[in-house]
Amino acid sequence: MSRISQRFSDLREQGKTALIPFITAGDPTPGITVGLMHDMVSAGANLIELGVPFSDPMADGPVIQRASERALEHHVSLHDIFQMVKTFRERDQNTPVVLMGYLNPIEVMGYATFAGAASAAGVDGVLIVDIPPEEGEELLQSLRDKAIDQIYLLAPTSTPDRIGRICNAASGFVYYVSVKGVTGSSQLDTAAVAEKLEQIREKTVLPVGVGFGIKDAATAAAVSQLADAVVVGSALVSRVEALQETPDKIGPALAEILSGMRRAMDAVH
């Protein structure tokens, strides 16, 4: 069983919903990321999504775009990120790590090389925003060869047919994008999310995470009643941005947000 599946199965036994924070690797500086990962785990994160910075993040709102730009000022590359995960694994062998980003850096590295290096570093899953299953056969095979889960996005516009097809290719979990829009959008409609999750669960037994639009403890708690995982990104990254001049304060600030979410989520279960 992959580290991701194991984690979801343990949480299910405990009757808990997974809390998945997203931060961009190397934001605001490369040296801070591993420490932040540990801080987030201590505050109640169950799985970590690490953003791979890209020059043209088409699916991201301004908050995560700027995070990418800050990381790229330090030329943070996939190699650097593998090193971060490797260092994280020295102290934490249980928390799954998913890399989230865009295809081109992986395309340039080569799929097999990427999968091999990611696996060696201790990466458990990969979510690539701009590769639908139609274009992704070869990459998927490379990831499967190394037992890395490929996480796919599902959207409000996904038809039942597409949901079925995507869930067949996915492993680990699937990630439902709760709004039509980019990361950091605000208007999350819980009723509409519930309806779509029902459609998704008809097609798959994989855990379903929900993200895009989770801002605070209240939205996290509301979504945790529907989903198997709550993904929070822009709300954290905007704190990183606000505190970039005082990096020592970033870890405690992220921990505060996450532990608030953790408490609120656990309280409704």
Partner: peptide, 20 residues
């Protein structure tokens, strides 16, 4: 029929845009 010119072209977008 999926928009490929040899190995080029195609459809590399986020899921939300696939149906549109």
């Amino acid at each position: 029929d999926r928009g490929h010119f040899g190995v080029y072209g195609g459809l590399f977008v986020a899921e939300t845009l696939m149906e549109p």
